[in-house]
Design a protein around this nucleic acid. Structure first.
Lengths: 201, 201
DNA sequence: CGCCATAACTTAACGTCGTTAACACACAGA
DNA sequence: TCTGTGTGTTAACGACGTTAAGTTATGGCG
């Protein structure tokens, strides 16, 4: 009775094809250019077929996004970071920014698009990514290196700062807005300043 | 020969009406809901009429945006701020955030939408707003309060941090993402930490 | 085998959007 | 009085997300 299993495998296969085609369009041309019709054309099916695998366009991009949160979580793997708590935080910030700059369209959808209908459950990669930050802030705090007691608030502050630098760099081209410096420079400066602002004494 | 003047006055009047209707829609319902047809309906003209006053939808929203940059510049008026350079910077950051939180849709378009075709000339309010930040950073530097020498880079760093806090707060509702704290609290903490990170010793 | 239910997939359409071509009309200047 | 310019309209085009209806293939079952 391997028939239904084969069916499921085939269904999964085309779901995979849809996701891959959508991601290709999404990465290279951005959200607006991911139209159901273009995705369908890319996989050589009719647009209606996509609706058998995803509820609507939002659901499709949401699925993409879910995969990307997993990638982000992997990119923040604590095992890859130094042991000194502060240096660790610094490298975490840079790794986060590296992910964002490498996947600007995804980042935009993940962190810059209001997604009221899709909250992050506690065991989701998105939630866990924040957990990594919080844990490292907690470690730095435990090592007596931070000035404040509110670990959550400090983690959010760091996140906000790096997020801001990433947003500026990915939104504006250097020549467009007043004197935006080389991307890497602004990000490094922002990570440094925000961490320093939380240090004890 | 007041005829052409009356004509121009009338033309200006309807342009004004279009902008007002568009702003109303834009503020309350966001960019997507500002359709040429709905704006036209609001002012009781045909959609085509709008195209006699604005090149396309982008041009219309761009005009809205231009007005908002002027409002931002006004909201950052240095005369309203304290005299101590650091306290001044702090209040500037809070005033910036206040503007953003009061006009989230406009803020989104102003600072979160890539606008490749519309750079900011040096005398534009957008450019000048950054000038205000840079000037205050320069003053703090002149007062010997800052650790670094690169005024532009420090101004951009502060901007990035506040921008990031504003983006998080306007994008996510408190219950949606991990433990986002009360908006005002995160913003204040971010302003404080980023400035502290730039202080001398 | 022959019938049929179900799932996969398509065609064709609806309503919305931004935008534009074609036309109508008022009216100042000759 | 004619004419051109500016101001406005209607009606359409093509692209979009989405869906109703229909087609086809195929495994299950008498």
């Amino acid at each position: 009775m391997g028939i239904t299993e084969r069916r499921e495998r085939e269904k999964e296969e085309i779901r995979r094809k849809i996701l891959d085609a959508a991601r290709e369009l999404f990465m290279t041309e951005g959200y607006d250019k991911v139209t159901m019709r273009r995705v369908a054309e890319a996989i050589e099916y009719s647009p209606t077929t996509i609706y058998h695998h995803f509820e609507d366009k939002d659901d499709l991009v949401e699925a993409l996004c879910h995969e990307d949160f997993a990638k982000l979580l992997a990119a923040l793997d604590p095992a890859l970071l130094p042991t000194d708590p502060i240096e660790r935080l610094r490298m975490l910030g840079l790794a986060y920014a590296r992910f964002a700059l490498a996947n600007p369209n995804q980042y935009r959808f993940m962190f810059l698009t209001p997604r009221e209908e899709h909250p992050h459950p506690e065991d989701s990669p998105g939630y866990q990514s924040f957990g990594v930050v919080r844990q490292m802030v907690a470690d730095a705090k435990a090592a007596g290196r931070l000035r404040d007691d509110d670990v959550d608030a400090m983690a959010q502050t760091l996140w906000a700062c790096v997020h801001g630098a990433v947003c500026l760099v990915t939104t504006f081209r250097p020549e467009q807005f007043p004197c935006v410096p080389p991307a890497a420079d602004l990000i490094e400066r922002t990570v440094d300043a925000s961490i320093r602002g939380l240090l004890k004494e």
